[in-house]
């Protein structure tokens, strides 16, 4: 069978393109460690969050050296705690659940973004860089005031974080 030289050329190029796309995603997973939103958390009772160890009092707590867990509750129409304060240059795992309907948890302008489903706990781990302030938005239509549902994520320096954690809840 005669195959035209140009046809060989663009067949080879398309195979290279596919390999490049696959290679990029592989590089993302191996190099920067990009992961999917985890499905590892067991289901909880969305109607009884006030009796739940983690979500009765939404908070950020230290769980290891430079590792923090943020327990976040999304409800109509806001996020708790507000603001979510985490230290800079640390590893933060967000455990997000909903007290009522399906919400979204999107740290605006970043890759931290997950659905929040009542009865399920969405777990995402991120690494923070320097101090910054991000907005959090709900990106799933959740009711009449969906457009006003927002929160704040504050990444503060280690010292400022410790000061807040120990000294004052008072602003």
């Amino acid at each position: 069978m005669h195959i035209h030289a140009y046809e060989k050329l663009w067949l080879a190029a398309s195979v290279l393109l596919i390999l490049f796309l696959l290679g990029s995603v592989t590089y993302g997973a191996v190099g920067p460690g990009v992961a999917m939103v985890s499905d590892s958390e067991p289901a909880i009772d969305a109607g009884a969050l006030d009796e739940d160890d983690r979500f009765s009092e939404p908070r950020v707590e230290q769980v290891g050296e430079n590792e923090y867990a943020a327990y976040v509750v999304a409800r109509q129409f806001g996020f708790q705690p507000d603001p979510i304060v985490v230290p800079a240059n640390s590893t933060v795992t967000f455990y997000v659940t909903s007290a009522d309907v399906i919400h979204g948890f999107e740290v605006a302008g970043t890759n931290a973004n997950t659905m929040v489903v009542p009865g399920e706990v969405s777990e995402i781990t991120v690494e923070t860089d320097g101090p910054a302030e991000y907005g959090i938005v709900c990106n799933e239509y959740c009711g009449a005031a969906h457009h006003a549902m927002e929160g704040k994520l504050e990444v503060v320096s280690q010292s400022a974080y410790e000061e807040r954690a120990s000294g004052g809840d008072g602003e």
């Binding site: 990029s24 460690g33 970043t110 910054a132 991000y134």
Partner: peptide, 30 residues
């Protein structure tokens, strides 16, 4: 024409994946 399309695809992918996606803060790692 195909070479131009190809170049557009490669450039867009590099931009979308390496610059826009990996370049943003708070990459999900777990």
């Amino acid at each position: 024409l195909i070479a131009i399309y190809f170049a557009i695809l490669v450039v867009s992918w590099v931009y979308i994946y390496y610059i826009e996606f990996l370049g943003r803060d708070l990459v999900i790692v777990g």
